[in-house]
């Protein structure tokens, strides 16, 4: 557990409100499109809020600024929250969110770096994030740049072998500017992680691969803030933040349900979800 530090109440409230706003956006978008992955988009809302509205060094007016922090959504199916965050951070008009998944839209069913401003890498097939981030960090070292690279991983994604190839590589080259965050919501497409392919002891696994490990409540803004700050200050090895979350967080009938990994939201479900979410804003 990361100790809560003295972040101002004003900052915490702002980031909590943004997390709930992003959840509302996700439900709006998934209802509008009739498809998507709401469960795993709702779970990392506090993490995305803290990253995009406080922690990451980004410039929406200059999305290719060379020394910007890099963020890779390795769990690309959760792109609704990335698109919502990019729009609210000024990378594109909010109106654009309505086009998600339509022919001709800059917002694909999974992230496309060539179509969407602010999307660093095309993702959607799981397991790629750590290796790509390692390449970015190694290149930054050669170029003398000091940006940080952040990767949001799904928990199910940790079942891919390639991810651990990347974990070894980042450790070998002591890539201390690589920060991974596991959105540990415990549920994947076919069921719970525990049923399909257990990950525990997850902390020991990462430690055995040479990573610094922080464990937090991923829905606590102060804990997310504290963990990211600690990870950024870490100077000799890559850091992973294991963030315990709830799949479908904030919508009672979605919480913890594998059925909500990937499906659209109908009109009735939309009404109920919005009523619940708006109570938090």
């Amino acid at each position: 557990m990361v100790a809560k530090t003295d972040y101002s109440q004003e900052l915490v409230k702002k980031l909590e409100d943004m997390a709930w706003q992003l959840r509302i956006d996700i439900v709006e978008m998934t209802h509008c499109r009739g498809s998507g992955h709401p469960g795993g988009s709702l779970s990392p809302a506090e993490i995305i809020s803290v990253l995009f509205f406080h922690h990451l060094q980004l410039d929406p007016n200059n999305p290719k600024w060379e020394n910007r922090d890099r963020f890779i959504l390795s769990k690309g199916h959760a792109c609704a929250i990335l698109y919502a965050a990019l729009a609210r951070r000024g990378f594109m008009p909010l109106k654009e969110l309505e086009s998600w998944g339509c022919i001709g839209s800059c917002l694909q069913g999974h992230p496309d770096r060539q179509k969407t401003p602010g999307v660093e890498m095309t993702t959607g097939c799981l397991g790629h994030g750590i290796n790509i981030a390692a390449g970015l960090c190694l290149a930054a070292k050669l170029k003398g740049l000091d940006f940080h690279t952040y990767v949001l991983l799904g928990d199910g994604e940790l079942q891919t072998g390639i991810l651990w190839e990347g974990a070894m590589l980042a450790s070998k080259y002591k890539l201390s500017r690589l920060i991974a965050i596991v959105d540990y919501n415990g549920v994947q497409l076919d069921g719970t992680i525990e049923e399909i392919m257990p990950l525990e002891p997850l902390k020991s696994k990462w430690e055995a691969f040479g990573w610094a490990v922080l464990e937090i409540d991923g829905h606590s803004v102060p804990e997310v803030l504290g963990a990211l700050d600690r990870a950024r200050a870490n100077g000799n090895k890559p850091t992973v933040i294991i963030a315990r979350t709830v799949k479908g967080k904030g919508v009672s009938f979605m919480e913890g349900k594998a059925a909500w990994h990937g499906r659209g939201i109908n009109d009735e479900e939309y009404q109920q979800a919005m009523e619940e979410l708006k109570q938090n804003v």
């Binding site: 890498m121 790629h128 290796n131 930054a140």
Partner: peptide, 22 residues
């Protein structure tokens, strides 16, 4: 960079370099 016997990881790591203009 020798990545070990990790062909898939090697390709993705190369992608990271390419994203940085290398």
């Amino acid at each position: 960079f020798n990545v070990g016997i990790a062909e898939a990881g090697m390709i993705d790591t190369a992608v990271g370099f390419a994203l940085s203009g290398m």
